[in-house]
Structure formats: structure tokens, C-alpha cells
Amino acid sequence: MSENSNPPGSDREARTFFVETRFQRLARRPGGLSRAQALENAQAQIEETKPDFESWLDGELRQLTDLVATGVQAGAADPAWAEGIVSHCGQLRDIGTTMGYTLLSFIAGNLCEILEDANTDAKSNIETIMCHLDALLLARQAQYRGLRPEQLPELTGGLRRVAEFIRLAPDDV
């Protein structure tokens, strides 16, 4: 570790120093896979997990469906309930694209955005959630699996408009 004096005119309280971390030292050792080989191997690892992913995905969608049903029965969306929805959707958003479900990621991300931005006790959020759930179940189907959001502009544009509408007028919905 070596220290440097601050250049003239910089924040005089600040101290700057150089650290070569163990990560940098070990990562730069000779050897290791080429980038192309590393990416190929990583993709192979992802492919290996895909059968498990299908089961996981169905489980997440089932839990989400059950959770939505409890909100519909209650007739209102309390914050804890909405947090549960965001939690499940967040996982679908974060993992879907990596596993080839880009459309599913988009829909789940759109719903997360709505619930994180809007008033969660608005009854109309239930309708918003239900229409996103329908879209998620559609995106799960085999014929939609490989599609990207821009390939279904009516669906994704409609969901985008819902998000935009709620963002612009959160108190009125």
C-alpha cells in the first residue's frame, strides 16, 4: 500500500492511497480460462439448471397466484401484501432473462415498478396486478418463452401505459 499526497486544489481533508487487493493479485495470475471459454462454460452451467428453473418458475407463479387471490378476497391491497407480490415478481424479473424468459422479466419488472412507485392501498392496484399476473402466465407458455418484449408491442405497450398512468396520477387510481 502506498500513499500519495493530494494534488493542489483538491479536498485537503482527503487522503488517497493505492491498494492492490488480493482479488486483483490473484485474478491477474497467469492461467485461467479465456473469456470465450469462461462464457461458454457459464452458459453450460445455466443450461444445466434449466430443468430446475422450470419447476421453480411454476412454484413462484403458483405462489403469486395464491397471493393475488387472497388480495382479491380481501378487496384491498395492504402494504405487506403488496411487498409479497413485489418479492415474488422481483425474483422473476431478476432471473427470467438470464434463463431465456425475457418477456416474463419485462412483465414482472413492470409490475414491480408500479407497486414500488404507486400507493399500494389503491383498490385498482389489484386489477393492475391481476392483468400483470395474466400476462405472466401467458409469458410462461412455451410459445411465448423465447419472445422479447418488442415482439409483442400490444401487450408490453399496454402494460407500459398502465405503469405510466399510475405514475402520473397515483392518488386518483
Binding site: 485461467g32 480460462l33 469462461a38 462464457l39 461458454e40 462454460n41 457459464a42 452458459q43 453450460a44 452451467q45 445455466i46 444445466e48 439448471t49 428453473f53 421453480w56 425474483q91 431478476d94 432471473i95 438470464t98 434463463m99
Partner: peptide, 14 residues
Amino acid sequence: YLCMLVHGILRGFG
């Protein structure tokens, strides 16, 4: 699941 996925990717990197 995300942990497992990132773990797998890193394993692929070596």
C-alpha cells in the same frame, strides 16, 4: 435461486 445461478456462472468462469 439467484444465488445458485450466480454461483453456477462463477463456477463456469473457473
